[in-house]
């Protein structure tokens, strides 16, 4: 299927198991839509999470995050493979 018409609402996806809980994405987010989760991931860190709405697709979190694969940001107008849940 995929996203064909262009994504209307930007979205940030965090792979919790790759997150080391440094908190830099949370600090960088201008909309304050990221937060520290209560549970531990497989490495024993409290991973960052997304509230589920409010992302503006600025990518600040992506460029603050030291883990290459932990954050993906889909901007408005994105066309391509289906956006992860």
């Amino acid at each position: 299927m995929g996203v064909e018409k262009g994504l209307q609402v930007p979205k940030v996806v965090i792979r919790e198991d790759e997150c080391k809980g440094c908190g830099l994405c949370i600090q960088a987010c201008p909309e304050n839509v990221l937060f520290v989760q209560k549970h531990f991931n497989r490495m024993g860190y409290h991973p960052a999470g997304y509230q589920g709405e409010g992302c503006i697709g600025c990518g600040f979190c992506f460029y603050q995050c030291p883990e290459p694969g932990a954050i993906t940001v889909y901007k408005k107008g994105y066309v391509g493979e289906e956006v992860e849940a």
Binding site: K20, M43, Y63, P66, G69
Partner: peptide
């Protein structure tokens, strides 16, 4: 699937 760098390390960002 994750780097060996510490949480927050600048290397990861520069790598990216």
């Amino acid at each position: 699937d994750v780097t060996h760098y510490c949480p927050g390390c600048g290397h990861g960002v520069l790598h990216k």
